[in-house]
Design a protein around this nucleic acid. Structure first.
Lengths: 152, 152
DNA sequence: TGCGATTTAATCGCGCACGATATATTTAAG
DNA sequence: CTTAAATATATCGTGCGCGATTAAATCGCA
């Protein structure tokens, strides 16, 4: 029995669940990012999409979706908002008109440097040393891969 | 330099970010839960809310919010849906009419046993041994607490 | 060549998360 | 006792995330 003696194996409190730690930590992360991204008129998922484009420009919606684990029903509206805000352009690929290529505008590219300090803020907010962060990241990523595997 | 040699310290790929591991793992967890919860007409956040009530019945909206790290703007509509589905009742506390007490209905209570097998499915999907899960959960929870601390 | 199957995005509806705001109740100060 | 401040919940608008569906382009194969 744990602490108060009222948590048997099948009566786990929410604070004892891995899923809830993930859920709440992800929201906490979002709350740290929000004020930092507000300055640029970006949401957290929009920022992630830009990170993907800063790695490799001119990707298709599908390629971005693979990297972000998202599909067009989520990405299309998000990318349209980034387009409206002038950070990306969306063009049908002339080679294959089914695909839409997303490319960074000048303003989208310059955002990479302007947002550079954000990662430092997150690192400080995490209050963990770099090797611990890397280890934790790897464990969470492999948990994700296990979960995704099982959802096949 | 890492693998392809194009990831310097300030050009981290999205897969190298702790925040993205959290983001994507949380979504992966959601995707495992969804088919299991669909059987009961529950969403994942609704299930978390019920877990909190199964631990302690008859809580106020505020108390539930503290445990879930959510506020009334999120919880009120969610709890109304649980009420519509017959799992909880919502009543103003006669001692303090500002507060609303959420209590489990008979059907909400019986759901606890009916959903009991879900945690086993999640455990299997995670494909990690129990001590590793516990350690990971504790690390993620303390990361969450650090982040929440800094967002003060 | 023609035509069904596959692939790629887009669209729609619903529920969550949250900032901002509103409403109602209780508390506290004078 | 009255009224301002504090507290608790609810409401509203926006942007995700996703299941289900639709539309258009391409592919495969007879």
């Amino acid at each position: 029995m744990t602490k108060a003696g009222n948590n048997s194996i099948d009566h786990l409190g929410i604070e004892d669940l891995l899923c809830f730690s993930l859920y709440s930590a992800n929201h906490a992360m979002n709350r740290v990012y929000k004020p930092l991204l507000d300055k640029f008129g970006l949401t957290y998922p929009q920022y992630l999409a830009l990170l993907v484009l800063w790695q490799e420009d001119n990707q298709t919606v599908g390629q971005m979706g693979e990297r972000l684990f998202l599909e067009s029903n989520t990405l299309t509206p998000l990318l349209k908002r980034l387009e409206t805000n002038g950070y990306v352009s969306r063009k049908r690929d002339p080679e294959d008109e089914r695909q839409v290529r997303i490319s960074l505008t000048k303003s989208g590219k310059s955002l990479k440097k302007e947002t550079g300090s954000i990662s430092v803020c997150i690192f400080e907010a995490a209050s963990m040393d770099e090797t611990a962060i890397t280890r934790l990241k790897n464990q969470i990523s492999s948990l994700r891969d296990n979960l995704a595997q099982s959802a096949t």
